[in-house]
């Protein structure tokens, strides 16, 4: 039992890191990305390759390497964002998803082909071997806190202010001297690097990396986590990751087949699209926001009744 809970926690934390940045991409750039799993997979293989070739299994080395590789890959796949707006990028990202994963499958000398790589040494940090589930949780939590802290920082700073503005009005943003395209590529790369980091952690935990695990359905699962939990919010991805990454366990608990995961995810997505456009986390934030709006317009109208007009 404790083992199951630990595993659920590890999955949830890992997926939280993987989709945290994506929620900013979906929330503020309003683009849907269907290639997140590919970057996640590239992060996985970064660890798998380095570890299986006995280069190193030290996370303090592998993670920075994955950040560089994942960042560059995201930069390349994000460049079309300068030309392709909104809906069209879905198609481009779908193409990237296939190219990257099929590329991995066919690059057998590195990836081991369809079966992938497995059975490599356990990860370590400065000589400390990370073996038990609790060890993993000790590693995951600070990384998560660091990632979350960075995103909160970005949101509080001028860059984040520009993101909020971009979601509302790109022309007014341009009149303010800020180019929306570069903001979009920026968050996209940030989201990709976090996914690559998560990929390293995921594979070092599972001890196996196979290209098939990072297919399109995995990308859909990741974007579902964002949508169910709530984009624009940083708590949203946690909720989404916690629930969707552990869905097979819950289904198992009520004696449903694991193959129902997709069905349940799909139904959830539909429900969210219809009833909770800002996801589960959006429930709380929209309530706070409405209160604030209400409070302020009440104040404004009581102070200056003659300055009505529409608002």
């Amino acid at each position: 039992m404790i083992y199951i809970i630990q595993t659920i926690v590890i999955y949830s934390l890992t997926y939280s890191i993987a989709v945290m940045g994506l929620s900013l991409v979906v929330g503020y750039s309003q683009i849907f990305v269907l290639s997140q799993a590919a970057v996640f997979g590239v992060g996985s293989f970064t660890y798998a390759v380095m570890s299986s070739r006995n280069i190193t299994s030290d996370l303090l080395i592998v993670i920075p390497v994955a950040i560089v590789i994942g960042g560059l890959l995201s930069l390349v796949t994000g460049l079309p964002l300068f030309r392709l707006g909104g809906d069209y990028y879905i198609v481009a990202s779908l193409a990237f998803q296939y190219v990257i994963i099929q590329g991995l499958v066919n690059w057998t000398s590195v990836s081991g082909g369809p079966p992938g790589l497995f059975g490599f040494s356990s990860p370590s940090i400065l000589g400390w071997n990370i073996t038990s589930n609790m060890d993993f949780i000790y590693v995951l939590v600070p990384i998560l806190v660091l990632a979350l802290g960075s995103l909160l920082w970005v949101r509080r700073m001028p860059y984040g202010r520009a993101l909020v503005a971009m979601a509302d009005d790109e022309a007014a943003l341009a009149a303010g001297g800020v180019k929306a395209d570069s903001l979009r590529v920026g968050v996209f790369v940030l989201a990709g690097t976090l996914a690559a980091v998560a990929g390293v952690l995921f594979t070092s935990f599972l001890n196996v990396a196979s290209p098939g695990d990072y297919g399109i359905s995995e990308s859909i699962l990741m974007i579902s986590m964002v949508l169910v939990g709530g984009s624009r919010s940083l708590i949203g991805p946690f909720i989404g990751a916690l629930f969707l990454s552990s869905l097979p366990y819950w289904l198992n608990l009520v004696n449903w087949s694991v193959y129902m995961t997709g069905v349940v995810t799909g139904v959830l997505l539909l429900l969210v699209a219809f009833f909770l456009p800002d996801g589960v986390a959006g429930l709380a934030t929209s309530w706070v926001h409405r209160r604030r709006m209400h409070e302020q317009s009440r104040q404004a109208s009581s102070v200056e009744p003659s300055l009505g007009g529409q608002s």
Binding site: Q299, A300, G309, Q310, S311
Partner: peptide, 8 residues
């Protein structure tokens, strides 16, 4: 105040 809550 949020700009959205201002009068026109």
């Amino acid at each position: 105040n949020l700009a959205g809550s201002l009068s026109y």
